[in-house]
Design a protein around this nucleic acid. Structure first.
Lengths: 234, 234
DNA sequence: TAGTGGTCTAGACCACGAA
DNA sequence: TCGTGGTCTAGACCACTAA
C-alpha cells in the first residue's frame, strides 16, 4: 500500500536529497526549473521550498536564487546528561543509590502537577562521566505516566527510556545556583565539605505534562554548564 | 510618503489586531471570509495566515478552522541583566569601576575574533538590582563595531545601546560554573572570601559578528539563573 | 537583457469535522 | 450536508541582480 505522495512533498524531498551534504552557498534548482521538471505549478514548488526555508536548509536571495543556508545558530537544546557527556566524548554511567515508588510530598506534587500522596518514582543516582564522579541527581517521575517503570529494569539513560514511551521532554526549565557541598554531598562526590558545587533544579515537560523534576549537584571543578541563547522575540 | 502596503501584509496585520489579546481557542475569520472582505485571492489570505501560524499566534485545525494558539513554550531567550531584573520587578543600576579603550590581549582577541592589539572597549561594572549588589561584570566590546562608544556616554543598559546601533546580540553562548569568591570579588560584592559565587562567561554575537564577551560573577545567595530549554531537533 | 524570487489572481477538487 | 482548511493549476506583473 503506497500512500499517494503529495506533489509538494515529492518536490521537497527531491530537493532535499539533491542538496544533502552540500556546502552552504550551493545553489538549489530555480523554481521555474523545478516547475518544468515536475510538471507542477509554481505555487506548488514554492510550497516545497518554503518548507525547506522554514527548516533552515535553504535561503532565498531575491534576484539571485535559492541557496543552501549556513547552519543556524540554535538556542539551548534539551539534552540529557548522557547525551551531554557523549558530545564531550565521554561515556556516562551511574550508580543507583535509591529507586522506589513513594507518595508525593507537597513540594514534589506541586512541581510534578499531581495530587499530594500520588505515587511517584524516586530515583537517586551518582552520575559519572569517563570514570569520574560528576554529580548527584535526585529525580522524581510522574508514576501515572510511567506504569511499571521500575519493574522493567532501570535504564542507563532516562531520556532514552522516556523516548521509548513517547514521553521524551520537549521543554524544560532549569534553575541554576552556586552553593557549597553539604557533608553528605561531599562524601558522595568525593569533595571536602564547603567546596563549591553547581546546583541545577529541572522541571521537564512533554507537551503539557510534567514528566520529571530533579535536583542535581555538580562538582564545580569537573563540570561547566554550557547554554546557548537565542534571539529575544518581542 | 506612505509606502505601498502589500496585500498579504494588510490582511495579516488586520487579523493580528483583530485577535490581539484574544484567548487561546478564539476562532480567526475563515479564509474565505477574508477573501471576500479584502477582495483578494485565497492564496493571498493563506500567505497572511501562514505567517501568523509560523509566528505561533495561530493554529490551523483542518475541517474546523483557524484559532488563536496557546502560547508556545520558548527556549532560552537572550536577555540583558537589566531586562532580567525588570522581569523580576527590580530596577537595575550599576557603578562603573573602569571604562576605557585597551589593546586586545590574546584571549580577548580570540574570543572577540579580532586581531591581537586591536582596540577594544573594556567596561567593568558592579551591578545592582533593587539596591542590592548582585554581580561584578567585566565586559569587552569590539571597538571597530562601536566607534565613539565611550565618548557618547555610558548607557544604563548595554543591550539597549547596542540595539540603537543595530548590534543587539541575536545569539550567545554562556559557560556557567560554581566557584568561591576571590579576595577582590568578596570585597566588591560584600562577601567573605571563600563564599560561593556563580561565574558566567558569555560570548554574544549579532549575526556572525562577535559583539561582546564578558565574565560575570554573581552572589549566589541573591541570584538564581533561570534557563528554558527547547526541543532537540535532529 | 535575461533570469531570479516576490506577489497575486480566480478559479478547482479533496478530506475532514460538525450538525 | 455544509463549511473548513489542504492542495493545486496556469497563468501574470513586479523588483532585483548579474552579465
Amino acid at each position: 500500500m503506497v500512500q499517494r505522495e503529495l506533489k509538494h512533498v515529492v518536490v521537497r524531498e527531491h530537493v532535499r536529497s539533491l542538496l544533502d551534504g552540500a556546502e552552504p552557498g550551493t545553489p538549489a534548482p530555480s523554481e521555474r526549473e523545478l516547475v518544468s521538471q515536475f510538471k507542477v505549478a509554481r505555487m506548488t514548488v514554492r510550497q516545497a521550498l518554503d518548507a525547506l526555508v522554514a527548516e533552515g536548509l535553504l535561503e532565498r536571495m531575491p534576484g539571485r536564487g535559492t541557496f543552501v543556508a549556513r547552519p543556524r545558530r540554535r538556542p539551548a537544546q534539551l539534552t540529557s546528561f548522557t547525551e551531554d557527556m557523549r558530545r564531550r566524548g565521554l561515556t556516562a554511567d551511574s550508580r543507583t543509590l535509591l529507586a522506589r515508588i513513594e507518595k508525593a510530598g507537597p513540594g514534589v506534587a506541586r512541581a510534578l502537577e499531581v495530587e499530594p500522596n500520588s505515587p511517584v518514582v524516586h530515583w537517586k543516582r551518582l552520575r559519572r562521566a569517563g570514570g569520574a564522579t560528576m554529580c548527584l541527581e535526585d529525580a522524581y517521575l510522574n508514576e501515572a505516566l510511567l506504569p511499571g517503570f521500575l519493574a522493567s529494569g532501570l535504564p542507563s539513560s532516562l531520556y532514552d527510556a522516556l523516548q521509548g514511551r513517547r514521553l521524551r521532554p520537549t521543554w524544560a526549565e532549569d534553575a541554576i545556583q552556586a552553593d557549597v557541598a553539604s557533608v553528605e554531598e561531599a562524601d558522595l562526590l568525593g569533595l571536602e565539605p564547603g567546596q563549591p558545587v553547581l546546583r541545577l533544579a529541572r522541571r521537564a515537560l512533554c507537551g503539557d505534562r510534567v514528566v520529571q523534576v530533579s535536583r542535581s549537584t555538580y562538582r564545580s571543578d569537573r563540570f561547566t554548564l554550557h547554554v546557548q541563547l537565542g534571539e529575544a522575540t518581542a
